[in-house]
Design a protein around this nucleic acid. Sequence first.
DNA 1: CGCTTAATTGAACTTTATCAACGCATGTGG
DNA 2: CCACATGCGTTGATAAAGTTCAATTAAGCG
Lengths: 244, 244
Amino acid sequence: MAFQPQPLTEVRQAHCEVCPIKKLAFCGRLDSDTQAALYRVSQQIKLAPHYHIFQEDEPADSAFQLLEGAAKAYKVLPDGRVHLIGFIMPGDLVGLSGRGLWGHGIYSCSVETLVPSVVCRYPAHQLGKLSERFPDLKRSLLERTGTLLNAAQERMVLLGRRSAAERVAHFMVSLVERAESAGGPSGEAWVPARQQDIADHLGLTPETVSRVWADFRREGLIRPCDSRHIVITDRSALLTYSQP
Amino acid sequence: MAFQPQPLTEVRQAHCEVCPIKKLAFCGRLDSDTQAALYRVSQQIKLAPHYHIFQEDEPADSAFQLLEGAAKAYKVLPDGRVHLIGFIMPGDLVGLSGRGLWGHGIYSCSVETLVPSVVCRYPAHQLGKLSERFPDLKRSLLERTGTLLNAAQERMVLLGRRSAAERVAHFMVSLVERAESAGGPSGEAWVPARQQDIADHLGLTPETVSRVWADFRREGLIRPCDSRHIVITDRSALLTYSQP
DNA sequence: CGCTTAATTGAACTTTATCAACGCATGTGG
DNA sequence: CCACATGCGTTGATAAAGTTCAATTAAGCG
């Protein structure tokens, strides 16, 4: 599918104080000892777009936290159908959900950058060792995993019981809320993906996504602008779709 | 929906040695100290069918492990549509995935027994305290949660990208495999639920489930018997449906 | 045995997928 | 700089999958 582009570059940061996602990071609330230990085993790496950070069924030797950019986590069925587990945005942690843990596992999905990105890499065995030494780290990972599980359950309802319009509305709102909580302007978001990816995320076809998108524009729920941006003009109407 | 039936009865067990799910339990591989501490804060409770163990958005004060019987975990949309997150079988642990953890959280879904059941209850704050004292316990919980997250991601693909026949086939195979790994006879399983529940689990209608079921019977993939039992006669054909 | 609930089956209808054509950018090479 | 290829989004026509509605049969349960 996507070719493997330019090599990755390590771009060691001075320290965690300058980390662009201090507030969102799983490591952001840890005491400075733990954070320092974590920093020592980590690598910061710049990645080209469409770079495969890891692939499903590969041995899981590392976890990654996205510092900048965007990525997608996905699974592929043997016949080529794709399902996108989620869009990975700054602050998200991937690579821990594999079967087996701490360096003996297998990645449960593939992750690929969508735009130029920077990740922070943590070798799994180090993460395992550190999490025995620093209980707060283990707790933080447990909380993260729990949050992910929660989100996953919400998505089951979305995919199992919601209509195309509801799915797209929900996607728009959650993308915008995510952008807002990352400090963006109110009611707006940048869409990190093609419509094919969005369709693969929502269990639809790109055509259906496009049509619903057009309907929302016609109904005045979103401002008509290019398909890589969302500007919500009537959030309550969208919420009515996405929450009912 | 379901009425709240007879009161629950505590049925304290002598000790963990006689636990019917020793092998499947999250606590089964812990050292005896940890297990003893866990046992001391636990309660074993007998529940009538259709008893609500807990409900979505309620304060999450306990986690529960199912010892005997069967239950369903589900979410309800405001307009009444239901989605079943999963069937809870002996050895499954529920109540930990709520938002917020260790007694400050909220249950993220409802859980209701389907048949007479026995659960082992762990107060959340005790579980929190113990998991700080016994690192292996926290690790075990983290592993459990990771496994659940994995399963949740598989289900997303199922719900987002698979046809009705594929979903039903997958459901049958996984139910049978679960029954087999719990020591049941090969190729057989007891279905703990009505077709409505199965439909709510697979994102279908009961009519569609019934039709696919009938097709499988006609095609000789399963033995025709009552709809509360599955007897697989051609597993490879079913796998072809459920894996392709 | 009669009552209630659940499963089955058929037929009409909806929603979404599929297929195909077109438009619009972007990028490339002559 | 322009012709042309390529990829993506949009739109329409048509088909398929699954839902909905309704009627019937079968299965628990007092």
